[in-house]
Amino acid sequence: METNTDFTLAIENLTVSFDGFKAVDDLNLYIDENELHVVIGPNGAGKTTVLDLICGKTKSTSGSIKFLNKELTKMAEHEIVRSGVGRKFQTPSIYENLSVFENLEVSYPYGRSVVGSLFFKRNDKVINKIMEIADQIQLASQLETEAGLLSHGQKQWLEIGMLLIQDPKLLMLDEPVAGMSVKEREQTADLLRSISKGRSVLVIEHDMEFVARIADKVTVLHQGKILAAGDMDKVQADPKVIEVYLGH
């Protein structure tokens, strides 16, 4: 089916099976422009797999993923990134041996070919952008710190910053507040609200309080299928969701 949509991301009939086990089963998911969408669900529901499929880390068995009406399922990982999809991993993935500044510089979306990187110059434009992002993620005072020395929460923010500097149209975050203190969670929620302006954000999260604070729309995933979708109040009142989360 070759249909164009107004959605930023349109996932249709997406299935992936690992040796017959369907981790994601006939999934349909749509994300609007400027929407902050949260996917929740019990362990093993297939949440991370959905992100892996979108960013190309895992190849789908069937179905389609359209990002701004561009089919992603056949593209290589770096092409997907270059088309405007950023993804944060569950455990902070930063370059521990590089400084905060270098972490952001390496992520700056220019000079991505071998020759381009060889002759990449650190000009004022790059520096200003890095400063701007560092301000946003509250690491402006630690630009020269080796990233490995940051606290867990700061590492998470740094990785978010590394994505922001690429100005993606779709930002995907896998459990961004896992392991954070209460205060850090609040700050992260504010950060997410501010960065979701002008782009769509897809978040995977367990912490219901945090979800309630940030989400425009929530999808509940269970055994690779959608159990419920809608705004937070509607989803929380859904008897099927209550059963999956509280039953057994």
Binding site: C55, H78, V81, Y95, V106, Q166
Partner: peptide, 18 residues
Amino acid sequence: SLLLAMKDKEDRVRFSGY
């Protein structure tokens, strides 16, 4: 910098568009 970055977190480099 990229070589050092790859040694540390190859996937992060790949998913930064390289």
